[in-house]
């Protein structure tokens, strides 16, 4: 069933965008010619959108309900899991505060940060938290730390668009920004009763 949904979704996603083709091509050509320098991987990755990025751009992050369901199903079907869903919250705290990685002048080959504080309040002690995303303070207290809660937290960080198509949150696992093991550390930061999120 999962595989069938994924098949249909991918076939639909591969269809060319309707209308505005000439303008779209002009804008793409202008965009690609506007960037140069830095890491070649960054250039390639931003020049070529994946289908989800293209569809979310086309629909300005408000896809029609049917398309949203397809995106969510297709994204959910390709989540990969680590051996253990709960890592070490101390490691998670470090990853959440680390804002580096994947900018064109960052050294490649280093582990990337999650930069979670850019958008979320997490530990109460950190006052300089952004508010683009919801506060995560008390996350585990509200949800418990059972396997179901671990799985849900993991999946939301791995690929937020498996739950909300065209969500503003980066698909940290899906896009390879964070490894499954790094995400498990963030799961611990959110759920572990000893973590500053729940103390």
């Amino acid at each position: 069933m999962k595989r069938a949904v994924l098949g249909i979704a991918l076939a639909l996603l591969a269809m060319p965008a309707p209308g505005q083709d000439a303008l779209a091509e002009r804008a793409e050509a202008a965009f690609i010619a506007s960037f140069a320098g830095g890491e070649p991987a960054v250039l390639i990755r931003t020049g070529l959108q994946d289908e989800v990025q293209r569809l979310c751009s086309e629909h300005r992050n408000a896809p029609p309900a049917g398309l949203a369901q397809l995106i969510e199903g297709a994204q959910r079907a390709v989540i990969r899991y680590p051996a253990r869903l709960m890592g070490d919250w101390r490691e998670g705290e470090r990853i959440a505060a680390d804002f580096t990685g994947l900018r064109y002048d960052d050294k490649p080959g280093q582990p990337n940060g999650g930069n979670c504080y850019a958008c979320h309040q997490i530990a109460r002690e950190e006052l300089g938290a952004g508010n683009v995303g919801p506060s995560l303070l008390g996350y585990g207290k509200a949800r418990g730390w059972g396997v179901a809660a671990q799985r849900l937290a993991y999946e939301r960080i791995y690929n937020s668009q498996a739950f909300t198509a065209c969500s503003a949150m980066p698909r940290f696992g899906h896009n390879g920004v964070l490894t499954p093991e790094q995400i498990a550390h963030l799961v611990a930061l959110l759920l572990d009763p000893g973590s500053p999120v729940n103390r």
């Binding site: 965009f31 990755r45 990025q53 980066p170």
Partner: peptide, 10 residues
């Protein structure tokens, strides 16, 4: 281009 999502962080 204002709405164009791309890159590792979408």
């Amino acid at each position: 281009l204002f709405y164009r999502r791309a890159g590792a962080h979408d």
